[in-house]
């Protein structure tokens, strides 16, 4: 699993309002993969809390479309400081949890609303 981090400077994104962070690979040791990164399209994700779960300071992120859904879950768990034994449930468009190995590109193409993939999260089961 690649090491994900929010860059200090929010990326500019004309299509979305508010601050946009970036989930980017920390691959400075590998120039090749860094240059490849520029050509990989990114998708925009918005994290939305439910059921009293903590809100993130930045809710919009850009992430490489080649990542899998599990990347978002791992990232979110870390941002929320969730211990491994704490459950975190993530839903696309407040409806369903995709398979953890679903590619973000496919999810974004199928389920993004106005270019943003909405991921709702909750510490308890919200949509059984």
């Amino acid at each position: 699993m690649s090491n994900l981090d929010e860059t200090p400077k929010p990326e500019e994104e004309t299509a979305v309002k508010g601050p946009v962070g970036a989930l980017t690979d920390n691959s400075s040791n590998e120039p090749a993969s860094q240059s490849a990164d520029l050509t990989i399209p990114k998708i925009t994700v918005r994290f939305r809390p439910m059921g009293g779960t903590k809100r993130l300071q930045t809710t919009m992120f850009k992430v490489s479309s080649e990542h899998e859904f599990s990347t978002l879950v791992t990232f979110l768990r870390r941002k929320l400081n969730f211990a491994p034994q704490n459950s975190l449930f993530c839903y696309i468009n407040a409806s369903f949890s995709p398979a953890l190995d679903a590619r973000l590109e496919d999810l974004s193409q199928a389920y993004a609303v106005e270019g943003v993939l909405n991921v709702y999260y909750c510490a308890t089961v919200a949509f059984g």
């Binding site: 696309i92 409806s95 369903f96 398979a99």
Partner: peptide, 15 residues
């Protein structure tokens, strides 16, 4: 259940 819901969402625009 979630796969079935995803399929349903794809078909109807909601689950």
């Amino acid at each position: 259940r979630n796969q079935f819901k995803e399929a349903c969402y794809t078909r109807d625009g909601n689950a």
